[in-house]
Structure formats: structure tokens, C-alpha cells
């Protein structure tokens, strides 16, 4: 048992070390290493982008933007936290700012939320409707807050800073999202 524990710890240490080597190579401008890093993390990045944007095409563009920004910012990573945690923050910030840029001027001026998605039926390809298809139907602000707080574990204070909204608004958006999801699930 103890030997197994040591092996697991050693494997984890090895993985961390090889990842750090990879990151150092990327910091040195190695594009091949960056391609490896991309394949390692695209699932995590795209998954978060998709839940935040609620649209496949927008999520793909946002994920590309994340990896372009990451190439510029990776020099700032000093290894003080886990790379995945750091990348997570970069992804959230870049995607939120990407969503803001993509919003039309009408939405910007009148703060109209897209309600079309709300009226769409959830993807019922599987017998049990999965949470993700509900989440992407949520209105934009409620969706972002729900994803960041309930799924990704950010505090409302952090979300408020990331999204430029008041802490109270973050909390009320979260309750709104929860209410909508529970309502939809009731009809399941």
C-alpha cells in the first residue's frame, strides 16, 4: 500500500516535472512544445469556453483566442500555482472579454439578453437530459455566473471582479440561473 502510494506520488512528481519542462520550452518560444500543450489542454479550455458562451462556434473562436493570448502571457507563469489553475483563470478572463466584444451594440446599449436560447428545447438525444444542454440555454449573465460559481468554484467576489458587476448582481444572477434550471428539470 505504502509502496503503491510512493509510486503514485513519484508518477505525479514526474508528470509535474515534465509539464514544467514543457512550459519552459514554450516560454522559450518552442512552437512544437506549444502544440503538445495545446493538445493536453484544449479539452479543458474548450469545455469552459462552451459553457461560458453557450454556442459552439463562439466557443471555438474563444478557445482560439485563449491559446493566442496564452502564447503572449505564458512568460508570466512562474510555477507558483498549478498550471491548470492558472490556465483556468486565463481562459475565464479571455472568454468573458471575448463575449463582451462579440455583443452587438444594441445589446451593449440596452443590456438586452438573448432569450431565444431559453425558448429552445434542450437537446434530448439521450434519455436523461444532461446539465450542459440546460446551462447553455441560460441567459448570458446568469449562465456566466452559474458556470463560474457552481461549476468552476469561483466566489461571487471573484466573479464580480472578472465580469465587472456588483457582488449582489452576481448572487442574484446565480439564483436566477438556479431557478430556471430547477424549473426546466422539474419538467424532465
Amino acid at each position: 500500500m505504502n509502496t503503491h502510494g510512493n509510486v503514485v506520488a513519484a508518477e505525479h512528481k514526474f508528470a509535474t516535472k515534465s509539464e514544467l519542462d514543457l512550459i519552459k520550452a514554450v516560454q522559450g518560444g518552442d512552437k512544437q512544445a506549444y502544440n503538445t500543450l495545446y493538445h493536453q489542454y484544449i479539452g479543458q479550455v474548450y469545455g469552459l469556453c462552451y459553457r461560458l458562451t453557450g454556442e459552439k462556434a463562439l466557443a471555438e473562436d474563444a478557445a482560439q483566442e485563449v491559446f493566442i493570448q496564452l502564447w503572449r502571457k505564458i512568460g508570466n507563469f512562474r510555477g507558483q500555482s498549478k498550471f491548470s489553475t492558472w490556465l483556468h483563470t486565463v481562459t475565464s478572463n479571455v472568454t468573458i472579454s471575448y463575449i463582451r466584444k462579440q455583443k452587438g451594440w444594441v445589446q451593449k446599449m440596452f443590456n438586452i439578453e438573448d432569450s431565444a436560447a431559453m425558448n429552445e428545447e434542450a437537446d434530448a438525444s439521450s434519455s436523461s437530459v444532461d446539465l450542459e444542454s440546460y446551462v447553455v440555454r441560460l441567459p448570458e449573465r446568469a449562465r456566466i455566473v452559474f458556470v463560474l460559481h457552481a461549476i468552476e468554484g469561483y466566489r461571487h467576489e471573484e466573479i464580480a471582479t472578472m465580469t465587472n458587476m456588483a457582488v449582489g448582481s452576481s448572487k442574484s444572477q446565480f439564483h436566477r440561473a438556479k431557478q430556471l434550471l430547477e424549473e426546466w428539470m422539474k419538467d424532465e
Binding site: G43, Q44, G47, E60, E132
Partner: peptide
């Protein structure tokens, strides 16, 4: 919820 999700096209 499965957090990883692969995009449909190669980015």
C-alpha cells in the same frame, strides 16, 4: 459534469 469537451474542428 464532464468538464473536458473537444471542439468539432481543429483549432
Amino acid at each position: 459534469l464532464k468538464k473536458d469537451k473537444q471542439p468539432e474542428r481543429d483549432l
